[in-house]
């Protein structure tokens, strides 16, 4: 308000301002959408807390939830950026699988943890780059392009691993998977770091703002001189690298590189979390914080369904329904408040 020009302020101040309750102001500060997500999260916690009060709130279970969402969190926040830019990356599960295999093989051959991790992430970034090049230079729709590479990358993972799971014997990686620093699991710390970086990128940098512009209206972005293709290529490479990092976390947790890992709906969960978090699939809309809340909801839901012994097949149905419900609710809100 303080920045509005004097005459505009004078004009709006001429009429008595409506008194706003504290709650309304809190909602506005957080964003209506994030506020509804918080409420949904609270409800889920209340339900599962009431159903399994004996285990749900145990520190061990909370830590379990955290471990479980670390991988999804990295994928989902990167997916958020891709969706904001007007794209979609379905190949992240396959890239994650490739990453675990690459890291396992690299540990085996070089014996260096650092080199192995860097190698895994670099290969993943290159795969993302391939996605970006197909989409921009080949002018292929992002869904089709990454659907194709999803199959192709998975195939490559099987080829280089001979279809075998490769065990990793490396104490440093094991520490990343199981260890704690300052009492917090390392995987969660990695997630927090990634989220902090993405949050700052999208909120406080020109690059982030330009990503919103490109997703919001590519023609406007072009006429404002933004190099759209460069951005898109960069974003898919980033998405690939993030999937590689997620693969590293998974390899560290399981102590193996498996060509099949990430094939059970990792991309579905990542997209669901991003959309739950307020991303519009048409681009230009969505926040990292929203994506994180989406991840938390999915994490609590997964954990709660396991604790209350919901059969696996029913869990799958629930997740599919959740994605569709998220889109329906988003559409509804856009129409009411847009």
């Amino acid at each position: 308000m303080t920045d509005a020009p004097a005459d505009a302020v004078a004009k709006s101040a001429g009429t008595a301002p409506q008194s706003r309750p504290v709650l309304v102001r809190a909602i506005q500060a957080l964003g209506t959408h994030n506020f509804s997500l918080l409420i949904a999260l609270a409800i889920l916690i209340a339900i599962f807390g009431a159903l399994r009060p004996d285990v749900f709130f145990l520190p061990r279970n909370i830590s379990n939830i955290g471990q479980a969402i670390a991988i999804l969190g990295v994928l989902a926040t990167a997916q958020t950026i891709v969706i904001v830019s007007g794209g979609l990356d379905i190949s992240v599960g396959s890239i994650l699988g490739m990453s675990t295999v690459c890291i396992a093989l690299a540990v085996e051959t070089t014996g260096s943890t650092t080199l192995a991790i860097l190698f895994g992430i670099a290969v993943s970034a290159v795969m993302g780059l391939v996605n970006g090049l197909i989409i921009t230079l080949g002018r292929v729709n992002a869904v089709i392009a990454t659907l194709g590479t999803m199959a192709a990358f998975r195939g490559v993972a099987f080829i280089i691993s001979n279809g075998q799971s490769i065990s990793i014997f490396d104490p440093a990686l094991r520490f990343i998977g199981d260890g704690k620093i300052l009492g917090i699991p390392v995987t969660i710390e990695v997630l927090m770091l990634v989220i902090a970086v993405f949050f700052v990128l999208m909120r406080y940098t020109v690059t982030g703002r330009n990503i919103y512009a490109i997703g919001g209206n590519p023609l406007v972005a072009r006429l404002a001189g933004l190099p759209i293709r460069t951005y898109q290529i960069g974003i898919y490479a980033l998405s690939g690298a993030a999937a590689g990092l997620a693969g590293m976390l998974l390899a560290a947790r399981t102590g193996s590189g498996q060509p099949l890992s990430g094939s059970q709906g990792a991309e579905l969960e990542a997209i669901t979390a991003a959309v739950l978090g307020g991303c519009a699939l048409t681009g230009g809309k969505g926040t990292i914080l929203g994506g994180l809340l989406g991840v938390l909801i999915i994490g609590v839901l997964n954990n709660g369904m396991i604790l209350t012994s919901v059969p696996t097949f029913y869990q799958m149905v629930a997740k599919g329904v959740l994605l569709i419900a998220a889109v329906v609710i988003a559409e509804h809100q856009a129409r009411r408040f847009g």
């Binding site: 406080y204 940098t205 020109v206 690059t207 703002r209 330009n210 919103y212 512009a213 919001g216 209206n217 023609l219 406007v220 972005a221 006429l223 404002a224 001189g225 230009g284 809309k285």
Partner: peptide, 29 residues
Amino acid sequence: KSQALLLLRSVKDNITLCVPDLISRFDFI
């Protein structure tokens, strides 16, 4: 509407879209 404005963004973001150098240092706004 279709060629010039980012309808999902604020007045401020729309005005500063083409002058990143004036509003940021090392990409930070």
